[in-house]
Amino acid sequence: MAAVDYFITGDHEAARGLLAQIMQGQGFEVTASPLGGWNVTRGSVGATVWLGAFAGRDKQRLEYTMQFFDSDGMLVARLARTSGAGALGGAIGVSRSASVFTELDQAIGQDLTNRGLLANALHHP
């Protein structure tokens, strides 16, 4: 599993709203998960089942998660990708999932940095 922990200063609810906006701006849908985190998804399951990686970059189903923690008053938002993410698209799909995950990580990190909210980011392979 690959993951990134973003240590975010400021108001926790405002930071959550900002994170949702950033991910939606990258084409992802953000929905609540049963444990209080988010499911972060993009693309079509049907298109990916039928076409695999040929569904294309925007239509291939990609699924990530975001969990939230508190660390010394800072919000920690963990974006994670399981090792099999994109597997419906075969080897190309898995590679694309990793590439899109990196792009999403960069978009989040850049936006939080530009706003002066990112205290730290830890990447886990």
Results as ranks from 00 to 15, higher is better:
Leu62Ser: 02
Tyr64Leu: 01
Gly17Glu: 15
Trp50Phe: 11
Thr48Lys: 00
Asp58Tyr: 02
Gly86Asp: 05
Arg42Glu: 02
Asn39Asp: 14
Val30Tyr: 03
Trp50Ala: 15
Ile92Phe: 14
Leu18Glu: 13
Phe68Cys: 10
Arg16Glu: 15
Leu19Ser: 11
Gly90Thr: 03
Ala20Asp: 13
Phe28Cys: 09
Trp38Ile: 00
Gly17Lys: 11
Ala55Asp: 01
Leu51Asp: 05
Met66Asp: 08
Leu75Tyr: 05
Phe54Asn: 13
Gln67Lys: 10
Gly84Asn: 08
Thr41Phe: 01
Thr31Gly: 04
Gly90Phe: 03
Arg16Gly: 09
Thr65Met: 06
Gly25Leu: 11
Arg61Trp: 13
Gly90Val: 10
Ala14Pro: 04
Ala53Ile: 07
Val40Met: 08
Leu88Pro: 04
Gly36Phe: 06
Leu35Trp: 14
Gly43Trp: 00
Ala20Thr: 15
Val30Asn: 03
Ala85Leu: 05
Met23Asp: 08
Leu88Met: 14
Ala15Gln: 10
Ile22Asn: 10
Ala47Phe: 08
Arg61Gly: 01
Ala14Tyr: 08
Ala47Lys: 09
Asp70Lys: 11
Gly86Asn: 05
Thr41Gly: 00
Val40Asp: 02
Arg42Gln: 06
Arg16His: 12
Gly84Met: 09
Phe28Glu: 04
Gly43Asn: 02
Ala91Ile: 14
Ala91Asp: 12
Ser71Tyr: 13
Ala80Trp: 01
Arg61Lys: 11
Gly17Met: 06
Met74Gly: 07
Leu51Pro: 00
Leu19Gln: 07
